[in-house]
Amino acid sequence: MELTQLWFILVAFFFVGYFVLDGFDFGVGMALPLLSRDDTDRRVVINTIGPVWDLNETWVIVAGAVLFAAFPEWYASLFSGMYLPLLLILLALIARGVSFEFRHQRKHAGWKRAFDRMIIVGSLAPAFLWGLIFTGVVQGLPMTADHDVRAGFTDIVNPYTVLGGVTLTLLCLVHGAVFIALKTDGAIRTRARRLAAGVGAPAAAAAVGLLVWTLLEHRDAALAGPALVVGVLAALALVGGLAANLVGREGLAFTGLAVTTAAAISTLFLVLFPTVLPSTSGVGTLTIDNASSTDYTLGVMLWVAAFTTPLVIGYQIWTYWVFRRRLTREHIASAAH
């Protein structure tokens, strides 16, 4: 296998990791107002991701840096071409991240409400916008011969990309709800399961719609076959995850939703390959060959990735293991502050 192909897989891997991990904690942020009756409930919900939201978010930094190092042209064209959606994502992530730390610093109700809203919007907006951006890439963008993206409003916002945004948002919400059910007990757990079941149907409809639309549009893609298999896997995992949620198998439901997100994002990468940024204007299309770094860079970076990635995965799994216990309102009551 060529280095460029390996790095395409690695870039996809880091983005998939990001959407699976930060995806469910976006969902937890969105579910905050839907599952909480009072401040104690809200604190339970927020604390479920307390120790891990930061490491989850780090995946996007690494995915971006890996993209920059391995495919500078892809990174440059994509990030400058999707300027305004990315700007909104940055602002949302800033608002959300600081809210986790700032919210509990004062007891004042108005203070907490303000940061709750920032958590909700800051979780909803990135999920939707990332969906918009990724499906926008799959759809293709008008480009110049120099690979510069010249996207107008409707190139980024149109029925297909909006469906992409809605799908990712709903998947994140279901995943977040399932995670809360897995991590809490009592009334919140029950409500979270009900929420996952309720949002599950529209999420499944949107996801299946998006996958069918995508696979039909890209019947001729180089990897249309594998894309179809992975797309079907995404749909099955979603159905399985939702069924597991209904019968109260929360760990299984969480795994099912994680596989759904991973497979859905992988499908988008698979229909793209070996293109990384398709042009709709006839010129400027970027592929893994004309967007990549040199073989030397890809080679040494592969060693770095080979050594660090297993370690990273190892200690992150350990972190989730350390914080595996369910949280309840009693924990909040006994916490001194």
Partner: peptide, 29 residues
């Protein structure tokens, strides 16, 4: 980014993989 990506991207990616991941995970721990 296009001009330096081949060189400049490498230390940034190493930073993410070998340093920032550690920092973000162990701060939570």
């Amino acid at each position: 980014s296009r001009f330096v990506g081949d060189v400049f991207g490498a230390p940034l990616a190493i930073e993410g993989l070998a340093a920032f991941f550690f920092e973000a995970t162990f701060i939570g721990l």
